[in-house]
């Protein structure tokens, strides 16, 4: 059974259709495996080879990976949620009720989005501390650390802007408390607050602003920074494995490059 399944899979891989999609071809040779990475737009961000030691769970705890996974879940759930959501007062709240009571699996979608958002904040923090304690910020990875700090801020703002969107008491007052802190900035405080909220109080304008930030600006910024973050991992010599002599090596040459 297993055998015939594998044969079947092999036939599929050799079909013209498959090969037109995955041009690298497939096979157990390292050439094929390299091509599987190189000739894929997304996988291209990875290097062809990875240090075996960096794959051990205890090294990274996969926290960066998991942060990215939660981000992808958030995008995947966020887009269908946008279909049901109006950034207006008080319709936004009514939409929450519709999601809960009328939309098929609407509540699950919202749950998954909300819990993933919390998980992402937690994971990104954990990632940062893990990277710090392993000393993975050392040259040549200094700038990637800085990008990481930016990504932490983007994550926090994404979560914070999303917090307002249900337009319930929890949302309204959490944002009110947060935005009041802004006005403590010397000189420019009230201006910054006005700019953020589109008014002097949390109102319909603030909801619209937060919606655009949450659904367009911050995800785009995050996506771009994540792209650079990943690319820099590779350009800075792959995942930091903590072995001596690894630092200060800008790039380990790879075959087929």
């Amino acid at each position: 059974m297993a055998r015939s399944f594998q044969n079947y899979l092999g036939d599929l891989r050799e079909s013209r259709v498959w090969q037109s999609i995955f041009r690298s071809g497939s096979g157990p040779s390292n050439l094929h495996r390299s091509q599987a990475i190189q000739q894929n737009l997304y996988l291209h961000l990875f290097s062809v080879k990875s240090r075996r030691s960096s794959l051990a769970i205890g090294v990274t705890w996969y926290l960066g990976t998991l942060s990215m996974v939660t981000f992808l879940i958030l995008v995947a759930t966020g887009i269908p949620l946008m279909l049901y959501y109006h950034p207006s007062v008080p319709q936004a709240y009514a939409d929450m009720k519709d999601l809960q009571f009328a939309v098929s699996a609407g509540l699950f979608l919202r749950n998954l989005h909300r819990w993933s958002a919390h998980a992402m904040v937690l994971l990104v923090f954990a990632h940062m501390f893990r990277v710090f304690y392993r000393g993975a910020y050392r040259p040549p990875r200094e700038f990637n650390w800085v990008i990481g700090v930016m990504l932490l801020l983007v994550t926090l703002f994404l979560s914070y802007t999303g917090y307002l969107l249900p337009w319930d008491q929890l949302a309204f007052w959490a944002i009110t408390v947060g935005s009041n802190i802004m006005s403590a900035v010397p000189l420019l405080g009230p201006k910054i607050r006005f700019l953020t909220l589109g008014g002097n109080t949390v109102n319909a304008n603030a909801l619209l602003r937060f919606y655009v930030l949450h659904c367009v600006i911050l995800p785009l910024a995050g996506g771009m920074l994540v792209g650079i973050h990943f690319w820099r991992i590779r350009k800075d010599g792959g995942l930091y494995s903590g072995k001596s002599g690894d630092e200060s090596q800008p790039q380990v040459s790879q075959p087929h490059e």
């Binding site: 709240y93 929450m96 749950n111 819990w115 337009w167 309204f172 007052w173 959490a174 408390v177 947060g178």
Partner: peptide, 26 residues
Amino acid sequence: SLLWDAPLEGLADPLQTPNPAKAPWY
């Protein structure tokens, strides 16, 4: 997500301040 529902409270009411008003956990 299957086991616990995301919190949702009453409609936002600027005139009714919950005590305490708390920011998101982070």
